[in-house]
Design a protein around this nucleic acid. Structure first.
Lengths: 331, 331
DNA sequence: CTAAGCTACGTTACCGGTAAACCTGACGCA
DNA sequence: TGCGTCAGGTTTACCGGTAACGTAGCTTAG
């Protein structure tokens, strides 16, 4: 890089500090000086050095870190997009990472990102290792926990209740006359949030006197094939469900494919419900019964809460974003 | 942050420089000294300051910037994932951005990222504004252009030829006996690469004496609905194609849905071909005829080319990753 | 026996910003 | 006339690392 503040200062006949103030849009200089400085900066092709700025003064960092479970998740891609749009518009940069649903990997990521002294952090989920919490305290930057709602966040939280999602779907399926519900999930050990949906679902069913008849949780990625084979396994056991709630839409679509392959009529013989609102599910001939999650809105809200805090405004501690149960034609 | 190198140095009874050398795994200290320093660093909960390191010495940056067209693209999510896995394993951090298929937005992003003095950059596509190229020269960091192959990259390139993808699909459809091919695309102005596929497709058809009978390019996002309505528009014009090549899989699936709605038999009455290898297309009853792009491999190759260059190894200038035409049952 | 070389450090000088304190002349005002 | 105030600056002192170079003490080749 050729030019720095010093070079501009010399060429404009002022001090480095004045250049700094002008370029950051501060006060304490005449219009004449500003014009001169700006012109020289442009002429020299000045590229600011955020490294130096952030290093010299911790207030000056515009770096935000965000960690998601998987970068290939369609849902989180939209959250990421919401965050990125909001942040880049406000002049912040986004450093990302993936934790593969592991709090240990999250800790490793936080350790890395902490060494960049970020202005703020966005984490997915509310489960963290003690060491992570400790690191976050040391970083002393605003933290937003997204996706799963916490009533007692480390700092701030934006999300919804997975338990309520499951409960709401349970109520809906009961209203539609379903009495023998089953569940097919995946990756139970790692994905705490899917577990929470199952809990809510089960609780409502039990309370209504029609408890879950069977569940199949595969130790596998929650995708199309897990849904396909999960439903196959469930039905093979003879528990004879009249509706199956899936971990997510991708698995539900896999279940639908299995039903079609075996000439099981949906929704007459078997109801199928998913979760998440996968875009691609729109390609199905029948609209999937599911819960739509406002992914982009979550990202936007998280970014805005973070920036509000950075600007010294109080900032919402807990933001609840509403999910929406979409009835569809499969449930 | 409480502890810095100085604190560790004092507590261990050595100089700051020795601590720096120990923690970076260098040489020039005894085993005894190393053990003492490492122990003290751990006890004090030392968190390194990459900001200071990168600022003090430009060789020390482990920051890589990556710009994709859209963060919500399933294909690029996998590229991103491939890059992130490869980089984080090697101790690098990833800063991301989206350019919305606009070279101007890309320029704005490069300008932002340049101020962080990144160790390397990954850009999508080979079209850049002159100012972008200028900035890249100033940053003087390795640059990898991915996705669309360039024979004359700014620095390095990893990708495949969109023109060849289109040409290969053209040849395939001709072999299957198609003689009246149409094309449905979207966002022609912004998406140069889709355009390249169309060119390759057209060239092969024309050469075989069965030129493209009609094309419909919507000024819209290339998604399910664009495919649906695009095919409707095309067919309404009466050009009577026996196969339609779509901009990508999502649009092809939309086209399939239209065909199904209008009781057009696929592939008997009309062939349908897509591009990109969308995961979700696996939920279709018939496998889509398409070209699968090795997204994760592209990301991995790009990251590895970058790191090789950073380590002083020569690094592949141009890496061609092979795409794979998947016949399917719709073409 | 001595010069050269090696090991294991220590010293110094930056990198390019920003905060905070300080300066200075012009002006208003009692 | 003297003093406070304000605009419009300048000066100084860091931030926490790393590169380059210096050096004491020991080893070893010639």
């Amino acid at each position: 890089m050729k030019a720095n503040l010093e070079d501009i200062a010399k060429a404009a006949g002022v001090s480095k500090m004045t250049v700094s103030r002008v370029l950051r849009g501060g006060t304490g200089f005449s219009d004449d000086t500003r014009d001169r400085v700006v012109k020289v900066a442009e002429r020299l092709g000045y590229v600011p050095n955020k490294l130096a700025a952030a290093f010299g003064s911790y207030q000056a960092s515009t770096l935000v870190g965000m960690c998601v479970p998987r970068l290939t998740s369609g849902l989180f891609a939209h959250v990421l997009d919401g965050v990125d749009r909001a942040l880049s518009r406000l002049g912040y940069q986004l450093m990302i990472g993936a934790n593969n649903h592991s709090t240990e990997e999250e800790e490793a990521w936080v350790r890395q990102i902490a060494s960049w002294r970020p202005a703020g952090l966005i984490l997915s989920g509310r489960n963290h290792t003690p060491a992570t919490v400790d690191l976050l305290r040391q970083v002393a930057a605003p933290v937003v926990e997204i996706w799963e709602l916490t009533t007692s966040p480390i700092d701030m939280s934006v999300g919804f209740s997975h338990y309520d999602c499951g409960a709401e779907m349970g109520q809906f399926l009961l209203r539609r006359g379903r009495r023998r519900a089953g569940y097919v999930g995946a990756l139970a050990r790692a994905d705490v949030m899917g577990q929470a949906r199952l809990e809510g679902f089960k609780a409502v069913l039990a309370q209504a006197g029609h408890p879950l008849v069977d569940q199949e949780v595969l130790m596998d990625m929650p995708g199309f094939y897990a849904g396909y084979y999960g439903l196959e396994t469930l039905l093979a056991r003879g528990s004879d469900p009249d509706v199956v709630y899936f971990h997510n839409d991708e698995m539900a679509v896999g279940g639908l494919a299995y039903a079609q392959a075996k000439a099981i009529r949906v929704p007459e013989d078997l109801g199928i419900a998913g979760w998440g609102g996968m875009e691609a599910a729109s390609i199905l001939p029948k609209r999937l019964t599911t819960t739509v999650v406002p992914t982009t809105a979550i990202g936007k809200a998280a970014a805005e809460a973070l920036v509000a805090r950075l600007k010294g405004e109080p900032g919402q501690e807990v933001t609840v974003v509403p999910t929406r149960l979409v009835p569809g034609e499969t449930g």
